[in-house]
C-alpha cells in the first residue's frame, strides 16, 4: 500500500506542473493589466511603468513563470496585490473559521441524510418515501439564497433564535454565530444527499446477497446495517471525500451573508481584482487538496472493500 501511495504522490508532480502552467497562461491571456489597476484612477504612464517594474511584470514571461514555481516550492506566495496581506497568512487565518462552519455542518448533514436514506430504502415506495422524495426535489429546486434570506429574516430577526450575523474569534464565542449558518448548510445538503444515498442503497438492496440474507432469516434492519451499508460504502466514500476540499475552501455565500472571516470569498475577490498572486496560490492549493483527497478516497476503498487491492 505504501508503494502505491508513494507512486501516486509522484504522479501528482506532472499534474501540478500542468496546473501551474494553465493558471499562468490563462491569467496572462485574459486578465486585466494589474499595473493599471494598482496605479488607480489618477494614473500616469510613468506611474504605471514604475509599478510594472516593481511587480516584475516587464520581465520575460518565462522568468515570471519560474518565479512562480520558486514561490510554490518555498510555500512563500508573496503578498496579495489588492489587500497587500501575506497570502499564506490569509489562507491560514481563514481556514479555521471556514472549517468551523463547514466541518460540523457537513458531519451533521452526512449522518442525518445517510440515516434518513436508510429509512427510505427500508420503506421504499411507502407514503413516507414518496413524501420525502417530493420534499427533497422541492428543496433542491430552491436557490440557496432563499434559505439564507429566510433563515436570517425569520429565525434570526423575527424569532430571535440566532444572531443575524457576526463572528467571535474565540472558540467558545464563535458557536453562537455559527448556529444559523450550520442549520442552513444542513438544509441545503438535505435534498441532494438524501436522494443520492437513497439511490445508492436501493442499488444494493436488489442484489442476490440481500435475498440470500433474507432467506437465511435475517431481519431487515440487520440486513441494512450488516450488508447493505457496508457494500454501499464505496459510492458514499467517493462522495464524502470528494467534498472535503470544498469544506476547506469554505462556503462563499454563507460566509459573506453571516460575516464569517473564512476563505470562501478569497478566490472570487481575487479574480474580481485581478489579484494574480492570490489566484495562483489558491488554484495551486486547491489542486493539491483535491489530489490528496482523491488519494485518500482510493486508499479508503481498499480499507472498506477487501476485494480492492492497491498496487
Amino acid at each position: 500500500m505504501f508503494k502505491y501511495i508513494f507512486r501516486r504522490t509522484i504522479y501528482m508532480v506532472p499534474i501540478l506542473f500542468g496546473v501551474t502552467l494553465l493558471t499562468f497562461t490563462l491569467f496572462h491571456v485574459v486578465g486585466g493589466d494589474p499595473a493599471v489597476l494598482a496605479a488607480g484612477k489618477h494614473a500616469t504612464p510613468e506611474q504605471i511603468e514604475l509599478i510594472r517594474q516593481s511587480l516584475g511584470l516587464n520581465r520575460p514571461l518565462y522568468v515570471q513563470y519560474f518565479q512562480f514555481l520558486h514561490q510554490i516550492f518555498t510555500l512563500d506566495f508573496g503578498r496579495s496585490w489588492s489587500s497587500r496581506q501575506n497570502i499564506w497568512t490569509m489562507f491560514t487565518q481563514g481556514v479555521g473559521p471556514s472549517l468551523s462552519l463547514t466541518l460540523p455542518a457537513f458531519l451533521i448533514a452526512e449522518v442525518l441524510t445517510i440515516s434518513l436514506a436508510l429509512l427510505l430504502a427500508r420503506w421504499r415506495d411507502s407514503l413516507f418515501d414518496r413524501v420525502t422524495k417530493i420534499t427533497c426535489l422541492a428543496m433542491l429546486s430552491l436557490s440557496s439564497l432563499v434559505y439564507i434570506l429566510w433563515g436570517q429574516y425569520v429565525l434570526a430577526y423575527k424569532w430571535d433564535i440566532f444572531p443575524i450575523s457576526g463572528w467571535d474569534p474565540s472558540w467558545a464565542g464563535r458557536w453562537e454565530f455559527l448556529g444559523l449558518p450550520i442549520v442552513i448548510f444542513v438544509l441545503l445538503s438535505l435534498g441532494s444527499n438524501i436522494l443520492f444515498f437513497r439511490t445508492v442503497f436501493l442499488d444494493e438492496i436488489y442484489h442476490d446477497y440481500v435475498r440470500t440474507a433474507r432467506a437465511k432469516g435475517l431481519n431487515e434492519s440487520g440486513i441494512l446495517f450488516k450488508h447493505v451499508l457496508r457494500n454501499a460504502m464505496i459510492p458514499i466514500i467517493t462522495r464524502v471525500v470528494q467534498e472535503m476540499p470544498f469544506l476547506i475552501l469554505g462556503s462563499l455565500l454563507l460566509e459573506s451573508f453571516f460575516g464569517i472571516p473564512g476563505i470562501g470569498g478569497l478566490v472570487v475577490l481575487a479574480i474580481q481584482n485581478a489579484d494574480f498572486p492570490v489566484i495562483k496560490a489558491m488554484t495551486f492549493l486547491s489542486a493539491v487538496l483535491y489530489m490528496i483527497f482523491q488519494l485518500i478516497s482510493d486508499v479508503l476503498y481498499a480499507v472498506v472493500d477487501p476485494k480492492i487491492q492497491l498496487r
Binding site: 485574459v30 486578465g31 486585466g32 493589466d33 493599471v36 489597476l37 504605471i48 474580481q272 481584482n273 485581478a274
Partner: peptide, 13 residues
Amino acid sequence: TSSWPQFTTKITE
C-alpha cells in the same frame, strides 16, 4: 461586459 480590471484596462488602452 467584463471584469472590473479588464474594463479599466480597456479604457486606459
